[in-house]
């Protein structure tokens, strides 16, 4: 539904987005990860037709967003960053406007508003002015506007930003539920959201895509991925030496020594198959008293930091 091809967006000399390509199909929820200033919002603004691309092209449902913007926009529901909404309207008035501008009238309009209000839990504030809403409600009001026409494509810029943990949970549930029938792209810098809702994630750093895959695939890029961590009764040096004798083990590090037990991590040689190392170590169980043994899946935050670390050093990001 969303096809981004070689998208570059320059502001003056600065490349906010640099040769980015990806697609999002129906039924997919794509998480767009990246540090602040990476170019997430800019990419979304190009997809929704707010900003023209400098180079490359974007198609939504087959419509080029530059050449036929209106048919493309009809398919999209958009929640911009910071969830703007007309402060001089009531929530109901605002949703009414959003529905009418999407061409909904009479019965279709009423039921669309009812549906969106229900999904976003807006009943208590329906007649309240947007200006006086709490941040969570304002966010959900803008979210309701984005889904009012039940769009095939949803573009959500930091949809859980500024919400409390319960609200975050609700919004994530909403996204995963809707993800089954729509193409959704949402940006975040909260990594646990990726596991909670994404079918795929892209990590973007300084305008460039640095990783693209399922959450599991991304985790495997973590330095600790595939390593085996175990807690054993015994002295650190004895355990390390014992593990190093296993041919599959490339390297052993001691993580913690507490009382009688020691926690160590063994890293596999390249090419080792998942589970092979754990099996080999498990075989030692007869000699050692192993209290705990687990294969590390890798951690997204480590991957994220590894891929985008350079950014903090470079500094100079405004937003």
């Amino acid at each position: 539904m969303i096809e981004v091809e070689g998208l570059t967006k320059r502001f003056g000399n600065k490349r906010a987005v640099d040769d980015v390509s990806f697609t999002v199909a129906r039924g997919e929820v794509l998480g767009f990860l990246g540090p602040n200033g990476a170019g997430k919002s800019t990419t979304m603004r190009v997809i929704t037709g707010f900003l023209p691309p400098t180079e490359g092209r974007v198609r939504v449902g087959g419509h080029d967003v530059v050449e036929s913007p209106i048919p493309a926009r009809r398919l999209i529901g958009y929640l911009p960053e910071n969830a703007p909404a007309y402060t001089d309207m009531t929530v109901l008035g605002f949703l009414n406007f959003a529905a009418e501008i999407r061409g909904l009238r009479r019965q279709a309009k009423t039921s669309a508003i009812e549906r969106a209000v229900g999904l976003c839990f807006l009943e208590p504030v329906l007649h309240q002015s947007v200006e006086t809403l709490s941040k969570g409600y304002r966010h959900r009001t803008c979210f309701a506007q984005a889904i009012i026409h039940d769009p095939l494509v949803l573009v959500l810029d930091e949809p859980t930003d500024g919400l409390d943990p319960n609200q975050k949970h609700e919004v994530r549930n909403l996204i995963s539920r809707m993800g089954r029938s729509k193409a959704i792209i949402f940006s975040t810098h909260i990594l646990e959201e990726v596991d909670a809702v994404c079918t795929r994630a892209i990590i973007i750093d300084r305008g460039k895509i640095v990783a693209n895959g399922t959450p599991a695939e991304l985790r495997r890029k973590s330095p600790a991925a595939g390593a085996v961590t175990l807690r054993v009764k015994g002295a650190a040096n004895v355990v390390s030496a014992g593990l190093s004798e296993i041919p599959l083990v490339a390297r052993v590090t001691v993580l913690e020594q507490s009382g009688e037990s020691v926690t160590v991590r063994a890293f596999p040689r390249p090419g080792a198959v998942d589970g092979q190392l754990a099996g080999a170590i498990g075989a030692l169980a007869r000699r050692w008293q192993i209290e705990q043994l687990q294969t590390e899946e890798g951690r997204l935050d480590e991957v994220f930091r590894g891929l985008t670390m350079s950014d903090t050093a470079g500094g100079g990001n405004v937003q």
Binding site: R45, T48, G49, F50, I70, P71, R73, R74, I76, Y78, P80, N82, P84, A85, Y86, A98, I101, R102, G103, C142, Q145
Partner: peptide, 10 residues
């Protein structure tokens, strides 16, 4: 910021 909303509507 509603300009972004308005100009991305159809």
């Amino acid at each position: 910021g509603t300009l972004e909303l308005l100009l991305t509507m159809p």
